[in-house]
Deep mutational scan, measured.
Amino acid sequence: MIINNLKLIREKKKISQSELAALLEVSRQTINGIEKNKYNPSLQLALKIAYYLNTPLEDIFQWQ
Rank of each mutant, 00 (worst) to 15 (best):
L24A: 09
Q62C: 07
N5M: 06
S42Q: 05
S27D: 13
T55Q: 07
N32D: 15
N4I: 03
Y52G: 05
I31N: 00
I49S: 02
V26T: 09
N5K: 07
E35R: 01
K12H: 12
I49Y: 01
L23G: 11
A46P: 00
E58T: 09
L57I: 12
Q17K: 09
I34W: 06
A46T: 04
K13L: 14
N54C: 09
N40W: 09
E11F: 07
I3M: 14
S18A: 15
K38D: 11
N4H: 03
Y39H: 11
L57A: 04
N37W: 12
R10E: 00
Q64D: 14
I9T: 07
Q17C: 05
N37H: 10
L57D: 02
L43Q: 09
S18K: 14
L20K: 00
L24W: 01
L43I: 12
L53N: 00
K36R: 13
M1F: 08
L6S: 03
Y52H: 12
K14F: 10
K14C: 09
L8R: 14
Q17M: 09
K13V: 09
L43E: 07
S42G: 09
T55C: 08
E19R: 14
K14V: 06
Q64H: 11
Q62H: 08
T30I: 13
I2W: 09
T30A: 08
S27C: 05
E19Q: 14
E11W: 08
Y39T: 11
S42F: 04
Q62R: 11
R28S: 13
I15G: 01
A22W: 07
G33S: 15
I2R: 10
I49K: 00
K13Y: 09
Q64A: 14
I31A: 02
Y51N: 10
L23H: 13
I31T: 01
L6A: 03
G33I: 08
R28M: 15
K12S: 14
I15Y: 09
I49N: 00
A46W: 05
T30K: 09
K7D: 03
L6C: 05
S42M: 05
I31C: 01
I60D: 00
N40M: 14
L45K: 02
N5W: 06
K7Y: 06
T30Y: 15
A46S: 06
K36L: 14
L23P: 03
E58C: 09
N5I: 03
L43W: 13
L47K: 12
Y39W: 09
N5G: 04
K13T: 07
I34K: 00
G33L: 14
E58A: 10
A21Q: 02
T30W: 10
K38C: 10
K14W: 06
V26F: 02
L8K: 13
R28E: 15
A21M: 03
Y39L: 13
T55D: 03
L53V: 04
L45V: 06
I34D: 00
F61W: 05
L20H: 00
D59L: 12
E58D: 14
K48L: 09
Q64R: 07
K38Y: 13
D59M: 13
W63C: 05
A46R: 06
E19F: 09
E25I: 07
Y51D: 08
L43G: 06
K13A: 13
L6K: 00
Q17D: 05
Q44M: 11
E35L: 02
L20R: 00
I49L: 07
Q64P: 13
Q17F: 03
L23M: 15
R28L: 15
L8D: 13
I31S: 01
E35D: 02
A46F: 03
D59K: 11
E19I: 08
E19T: 12
T30G: 03
N37F: 07
E19K: 14
N4E: 01
K38R: 09
Y51T: 10
L23D: 08
A46C: 07
N4G: 03
N4V: 03
L45E: 04
W63G: 04
K36Y: 08
Q62W: 06
S16H: 05
N4L: 03
K48R: 14
K48G: 07
S27I: 03
P41C: 06
P41Y: 03
I15E: 01
L6V: 05
Y51W: 12
N40H: 11
S16N: 08
I15W: 06
L47Q: 12
Q44D: 11
K12D: 10
N37P: 01
N5F: 06
T55H: 08
L23R: 11
D59V: 09
F61S: 00
E25N: 14
S18Q: 14
E58F: 09
E25C: 11
K36G: 12
A50I: 03
K48H: 06
